[in-house]
């Protein structure tokens, strides 16, 4: 049986703080929609744009697996574990907040905006030791998905405390592929970064999201497109 939910881009929660413009696929901060709380353990999908030279000052987190993916520009990250790094376009960062950490994130560029996704997953265990991981992701080969996150430290991409797999890919118009789930009990939340895509017969446009329960996904690019697939457990 196949179940799905579609979140069109325009129906997302929106926040405009001047220096920060954000679209929330799920309830976040002052955006509360009881019908948009989560997709399995995927709790936050924020599509953020931060003005040049601006950013989030020191603030705490706990008990979340927090993934940042720059889409345009670079982010400067500092945290209470002593990490200080620039997350460039073409990289992914994962942070296990666990028992609690402080961090800050700033746009590295003084004038141009930085655009990035911030994704929060519930962890599979509370109060783990905080940790930080960052790797390059190579999407050069087109029309295939590239794994950028998994539960396994030795696998491609960053690893997190959750039975989840993320894949990204760039697709030419007309390209078609199949995504097989790593764990058939999981669901997949597809987020279209650009272009138009049909997934299991459902047409999705840029910044649309679709949560789907199925054994596999048939993905067809209707235009040149970039896609993020987030395979996540459906039970906390």
């Amino acid at each position: 049986m196949e179940n799905f939910v579609i979140h069109k881009a325009a129906t997302r929660g929106a926040a405009d703080h001047g220096w920060l413009k954000s679209h929330h696929s799920f309830s976040f901060a002052n955006y509360y929609n009881p019908d948009r709380m989560n997709f399995g353990v995927l709790r936050v999908l924020n599509d953020d744009t931060v003005d040049g030279g601006r950013g989030f000052g020191d603030h705490p987190h706990d008990n979340m697996e927090i993934i940042s993916i720059p889409l345009e520009g670079d982010l400067v990250h500092k945290d209470s574990m002593g990490n200080e790094a620039v997350i460039n376009r073409g990289e992914i960062q994962a942070m296990s907040a666990g028992t609690g950490i402080y961090h800050s994130e700033y746009n590295k560029n003084g004038t141009a905006p930085v655009k990035f996704l911030q994704i929060w997953l519930y962890p599979n265990k509370r109060n783990v030791k905080p940790r930080y991981d960052q790797v390059k992701i190579d999407l050069t080969e087109k029309n295939v998905f590239h794994q950028i996150l998994s539960p396994n430290a030795e696998d491609a991409g960053v690893w997190i405390h959750q039975n989840a797999w993320f894949n990204m890919g760039k697709f030419d118009k007309g390209a078609e592929t199949t995504y097989q789930l790593n764990d058939k009990t999981n669901g997949v939340y597809a987020f279209i970064l650009s272009g138009s895509v049909t997934i299991n017969g459902q047409l999705l446009d840029a910044r649309d999201g679709m949560g789907i329960l199925a054994d596999s996904l048939n993905v067809k690019a209707e235009t040149d497109a970039e896609i993020l697939l987030m395979e996540v457990p459906m039970e906390l």
């Binding site: 509360y32 907040a97 929060w120 509370r126």
Partner: peptide, 19 residues
Amino acid sequence: KHYGGGSGLLFGEIHEALR
């Protein structure tokens, strides 16, 4: 059971619990 450590999830958690 609070997750996140700040304003991101806190308000939604309270609203959901009250609802």
